[in-house]
Design a protein around this nucleic acid. Structure first.
Lengths: 147, 147
DNA sequence: TTGATTAGTTAAGCGGACTGAAGTATATTC
DNA sequence: GAATATACTTCAGTCCGCTTAACTAATCAA
């Protein structure tokens, strides 16, 4: 089986569909929460527990400290982030999502999940099991690759 | 097999990983192209051949005609969109991606594809075939659902 | 303890993305 | 053919996100 060719094609088509869907999902999330793209990205970084200082965030997002500080300030005022002084180093701030901030991200993850779930449920049981197995494999591969 | 429970869990985890990846991809695309999120969304709409007039775009994006017109204007000046008069109705404009505009979108789709491809290539051949089959099923299901 | 470094904030200013309102040109309707 | 509707553009004004530069406060190193 010329598996390589097929693999590339199938993945390309899936990517195209998923890319489009991602765009819609993000847009929807932005409209609902009245947040900008970069604010959502910022929340997602915190959600996944990256470096949690102001400059750490800025660095990850490719913006200056000043920009990060201002953006964070808005999110704090919206009650989505908690900003406390780091007891170990009183210059630094510790940034954590509030319950509300976490809810916002999980909600959009769930919304996307529901879309895939709807797709999957349209399949036969056998096919469903294959999809589950495949996504599980991909998830594990992605985790391994990121770490 | 309590397939429903597993399905939801597996999909949720996959969504989380993919959501995060999507964010990064979009960010990367924005940084590279120096475009905003909404400009990329606009290009993607055209790429997938939705309604291609100014007000159609605005409606799909949930913004006013004025905003759509201005945004399109910038993209035309950047050489990413071609805006011509509709011969059928001279009030209307026909909007089409230029070669450069298309390239921009396909490039980001490909970038995402390469990520999945890398994930997949880390699997055994048997597993790869399963992933191909599963993504193919999902792609078809998504196409059916959208239409 | 003084000087340099690091973490973060604040201020001024720029451009992008949006809105509502007004304007132009074409189509439709009666 | 006059009134109305439609497709789009332009304008004035607002907010957001970014930048650089100047600042405060805490830490580190000699």
């Amino acid at each position: 089986m010329s598996s390589t060719k097929e693999l590339t094609d199938v993945i390309y088509e899936w990517s195209e569909i998923f890319m489009r869907r991602s765009g819609r999902d993000f847009k929807h999330c932005m409209d609902q929460s009245r947040l900008s793209f970069s604010q959502i990205i910022l929340l997602m970084r915190l959600y996944h527990g990256g470096r949690n200082g102001v400059s750490g965030i800025g660095e990850q997002l490719g913006i200056t400290n000043a920009a990060a500080s201002q953006s964070i300030d808005r999110l704090v005022n919206l009650g989505l982030i908690e900003r406390t002084e780091d007891p170990e180093d009183r210059r630094a701030k510790q940034l954590v999502l509030t319950r509300q901030g976490q809810a916002l991200i999980t909600k959009s993850v769930k919304a996307r999940g529901q879309w895939i779930e709807r797709l999957t449920k349209a399949l036969t049981l056998e096919q469903q099991n294959m999809v589950i197995a495949a996504l599980d494999l991909l998830t594990k591969a992605a985790r391994k690759m990121d770490s």
